[in-house]
Design a protein around this nucleic acid. Structure first.
Lengths: 368, 368
DNA sequence: TTGTATGCGTTATCAG
DNA sequence: CTGATAACGCATACAA
């Protein structure tokens, strides 16, 4: 990607004072953005040469290159992306559709994904679907129509026709935040069930028997589903009845987490631990606990998932599952680029999570 | 730019079974995305008619429209955006460059901005610049090259040549998160200085005299500058010496806020209040206070800015300045669309902030 | 090394 | 109401 710096002080005057009609004898013709042609004329070469200067500078002799680059500079030329895409049938653009930008869950991983992409000369286009499958479908179409060379999707759960559509348009795609080597598209992520299962094992080992969970909406969300499943399995493996898991589903918002926690605490007998689908819900739970005067972890334990910054800020700090978001973002970018460039057929990569012990999980009250 | 390797036909069959192999005697020719032409042929009309069906359905008779739409459907046709932009010279796309996606500061406002845009038929393209002016410059060029009809920028502080460039390309732009009716481009935002000044007034009224501030990097950030200035002015107005404001500049990260707070607490005499440039820094300060065993607000008060969710989660909850992000996002979207559509010349709009009293600000120790 | 000419997939201007 | 056809701005095979 070329880096052009334009300097042209003249037009700066326009706004500050539209008073005096700066009639530049344009004969009313709106001056529009300069094109390859303009640059070519200014430099006294053909458009092909200008194009080459920009795209493969080594294929043009020093002298002319200088002249061209200078023309580019002084005209403030920027290649028209649409035209370039049409001609080259390649956009160096990757699209990503994430469920939400509203909280930090995807921010970190995506940031790294973008940085990695940029290093390889790609640009990232992001949309958020607000967890709505219809919106997501529309955004996938939009991104494809925009010429995205590849797509990053979150989780596997979506209608088959979407995958068919991507196949038809030959758009390589990759799933992240989820890992399942048997599914298509390939995925770069972590085992949500296993990770949550590990945490549940810790919870059970600490002596908890009355377990409650505040989950995200599982409908259409394989990560949420898997996390619930992870808890269930751990219970079963420890001789507990998984059906006795008190489950509360809600959207991933702090307020919702607080609300759900309140409901759970109203039950009798009270659960001794509330496992949350992610740190955001857990933060809400903690806030409500404080409001209700319920001490965590003395009276009830709370756990999170993701280990976003929030987890460390909150009081008490959350025992949670650390997800190496940056590593995931980086590896996803590399793999997707490889797919786009035909270097890889699409390989699934598992990212390891790890438990982070902090203060919000302890033995149940009355134990020892 | 490296040479491009295109994925060849081999990988085609992978995921789904297209059922009846609609062998179009392609002889191994990679089946590519359907075009207007394909649809036209399938429906037995001209490309012009297909285009009309999609863009102004009322200009074509019911019968043919049905046929065309069906062809579109069965072929899984999606208009090629690049081609459309080139032909129509209009993209119905708005670009936004924000300093970071890493924390929640811009998330809420941008989400609303996007929603509002979508309602009006526009798509939002977001990039984040990591607070780097060079990256921002490049991204502005990218967005313009991509045919953005308009641009949303954060704050006014950037080189004049960038504005010249936008002017040359005739791209309407709007500034948000900042308000200054005398500047160009027009801005939809709030008075950072006034808002912070109001908070500082409250701090001083509470009896504080030894005031410290953890600010974001003021270089190239007019919001950060204005917030510092707001504190200074309030001090001056209250007969304090603004030069005695202990100032600590750092990037907007929790860890940095914590670090800065530590340094401030090591000074002697200790400040009795630490005003933070935003809630993220304040959260860091609070965390460090807890670590150091310094009680907030008993031993030292802490204030924030923005009133993002974090502010309410943290212990003690932050006294801060509430910014109606959604309202700002909504109004910015409306105004920018009006500018793009030629309905408005560009009008600046001031959004009102308000103080939120929570627990982190009290009288200085030893007062009363 | 450089220039010429063609095509990319739409929209829009004209005729019909 | 519908069909040709000319742009749109760039990349690239081919020629010189």
């Amino acid at each position: 990607m070329q880096a052009l710096t334009l300097v042209d002080g003249i037009s700066a005057v326009l706004w500050y004072d539209e008073g005096q009609d700066t009639d530049r004898h344009d004969m009313g013709k709106t001056r529009s953005a300069p094109t390859l042609n303009d640059v070519a004329k200014a430099a006294g070469v053909s458009t092909a040469t200008v194009s080459r200067c920009l795209n493969s500078p080594d294929r043009v002799i020093e002298a002319t290159r200088q002249r061209v680059l200078q023309a580019v500079e002084s005209l403030g030329y920027t290649p028209n992306f649409a035209a370039r895409v049409m001609a080259a049938k390649r956009s160096y653009t990757i699209g990503a559709i994430i469920p939400t930008m509203d909280n930090a869950i995807f921010a970190r991983g995506l940031q790294e994904f973008q940085d990695q992409l940029r290093e390889s000369g790609y640009t990232l286009l992001v949309s958020s679907s607000a967890y709505d499958p219809e919106v997501e479908r529309e955004q996938i179409r939009t991104l494809v129509a925009r010429g995205a060379d590849g797509l990053l999707l979150i989780g596997h759960a979506r209608d088959a026709d979407i995958y068919a559509y991507l196949e038809r348009h030959q758009i390589p795609s990759l799933v992240a935040w989820s890992y399942d080597p048997h599914m298509h598209p390939p995925s770069v992520g972590f085992g949500n069930a296993a990770a949550m299962g590990e945490l549940a094992q810790r919870v059970i080992s600490a002596g908890h028997r009355r377990i409650a969970m505040i989950s995200g909406i599982t409908q259409g969300n394989d990560r949420a589903q898997a996390r619930v499943e992870g808890v269930r399995q751990a219970m079963t493996e420890n001789g507990l009845n998984a059906d006795e898991l008190t489950l509360c589903e809600t959207t991933y918002e702090i307020d919702k987490g607080a609300e759900a926690f309140g409901k759970l605490m109203a039950r009798s007998p009270r659960p001794t631990v509330v496992m949350c689908g992610n740190d955001v819900l857990a933060a809400g739970a903690l806030r409500e606990a404080q409001r209700l005067g319920i001490s965590v972890p003395d009276q009830v334990s709370v756990t999170g998932f993701d280990d976003i910054e929030l987890a460390e800020i909150v009081t008490p700090a959350l025992t949670t599952v650390h997800v190496p978001h940056r590593e995931m973002g980086r590896k996803a970018a590399r793999e997707l680029i490889a797919m786009v460039e035909g270097t890889s057929e699409g390989r699934s990569i598992c990212i390891d999570t790890r438990l982070v012990d902090r203060c919000s999980l302890a033995e149940p009250p009355g134990a020892q």
